[in-house]
Simulated scan of single mutants.
Amino acid sequence: MGSVYARPETKRLIIDFRYQGVRCKETTSLPDTKTNRKKVEKLLQTIEAEITLGSFEYHKYFPNSNRAKLFASQALHESSGNFPTFRNFAEQWFGEMETQWRKSHSDTVRNTIDKYLIPNFGEKEVGHITKAEILSFRASLAKVTARNGKQLSPSRINHIMTPLRMILNEAANRFNFSSPYQGIKSLKVPRTDVEPFTLEEVRLILDNVRVDFKNYYTVRFFTGMRTAEIDGLQWDAVDFQQRQVLVRSTLVNGRIESTKTDGSFRAIDMSQLVYDALMSQREATDHNQFVFTTRAGTPLSHNNVTKRVWYPLLRYLGLRKRRAYQTRHTAATLWLASGESPEWIARQMGHATTEMLFRVYSRYVPNLTRQDGSAFERLLKQNFDVKTLEVSHDE
């Protein structure tokens, strides 16, 4: 069911409806008045009736619309049996999708299209790409060497294949052919490499890290914040009165963006260590926008910090080399080990449910808490006469 509403900026009426599975929004030249609304609503009813009868012709109502050109092009392809090239359709698809993505994600998809997809499928017609060609392309990705000298991981290959799947499925929907991607499953990805630090290792790191980064790593270890979240943390998101850190933005490629998901938008409760660290940090950078900055007052570059501070510190302490992201895993395991509610931990981490906690982290808890059945044994001793449960060997 379509709708009519006014564009906030211009107060001009917009017709919003669906045609051939595509959401179409067309701006009229009419200002938002009661009379004009009735007129446009009546027009919408006529359009939807024609769509139902199969007699709707887009260009007759919106001759100057880009959508009109698109649907006319589709009709031509369907009648002639020809299809647009992958390059042309991929560009059109990207232009339509880009507005709903974060800038960092848009850049990633753009890079994937330019570096991998167009060189392999660019001049092929979308309706003539075969399943065998897709599988052959994926197999070739497994032989590609990344900048670190290693071959592309299954996870990276899946991320490259995702835009290809979306483009081909959308083309199949628009030009009425069976998508060659049907039946192709993603590569199996090994479980996330979780290597949390022990409490003793955390203490060792915080006792020996550079003074100007002690607060930074204290907050990382005891809030579970992601790298982009802590690097993008601003002072207006630190609530000392409520003792909470509000995660509502991230720093990606030097740009401030919204959090990755709705669940990531959250409030993290400050422990005393975190509270003290942020109070200390306020004395150093409260005149800046960001909580943690370079000496010049600019946001931190995580690559630079990792190479110049994090990895040298681990080498100096004789600790196994691990990504700084393991500080997030450390926070999760320490919370679990201390007996905090899984629901509370999930909220602190930005997880929608507790499923990931039990799947990824719970195996570390017995080693940290010694809760290997002895807690249940104590419960029995407190509530039952253990002697009556023992088997007598005197009979």
Rank of each mutant, 00 (worst) to 15 (best):
11 K>T: 00
11 K>L: 08
12 R>T: 06
26 E>R: 00
31 P>I: 09
41 E>Q: 11
48 E>F: 03
59 H>P: 00
60 K>N: 02
64 N>V: 04
65 S>P: 02
66 N>V: 03
67 R>P: 02
71 F>P: 11
80 S>F: 01
83 F>K: 09
88 N>T: 14
100 Q>W: 08
103 K>Y: 14
103 K>C: 14
105 H>A: 14
107 D>F: 13
114 D>P: 03
115 K>R: 13
117 L>S: 11
123 E>M: 08
124 K>E: 09
143 K>R: 05
151 Q>F: 15
151 Q>L: 15
159 H>E: 09
161 M>H: 07
164 L>S: 07
165 R>M: 08
171 A>V: 15
184 I>P: 06
191 R>T: 03
193 D>K: 09
194 V>C: 12
195 E>D: 03
197 F>L: 01
198 T>Y: 00
202 V>D: 00
209 V>E: 11
210 R>L: 14
212 D>K: 11
225 M>W: 12
227 T>K: 06
229 E>P: 08
234 Q>L: 06
241 Q>H: 04
243 R>H: 10
245 V>H: 09
245 V>Y: 12
249 S>F: 01
250 T>A: 13
257 E>N: 01
272 Q>H: 14
273 L>T: 14
279 M>P: 11
281 Q>G: 15
289 Q>T: 12
300 L>D: 00
304 N>C: 05
313 L>T: 07
326 Q>D: 01
328 R>Q: 06
329 H>A: 00
339 G>R: 13
346 A>H: 09
347 R>V: 11
347 R>D: 14
356 M>A: 04
357 L>N: 04
367 N>M: 15
368 L>W: 01
369 T>H: 03
384 F>C: 10
388 T>R: 14
388 T>L: 15
392 S>Y: 08
393 H>Q: 10
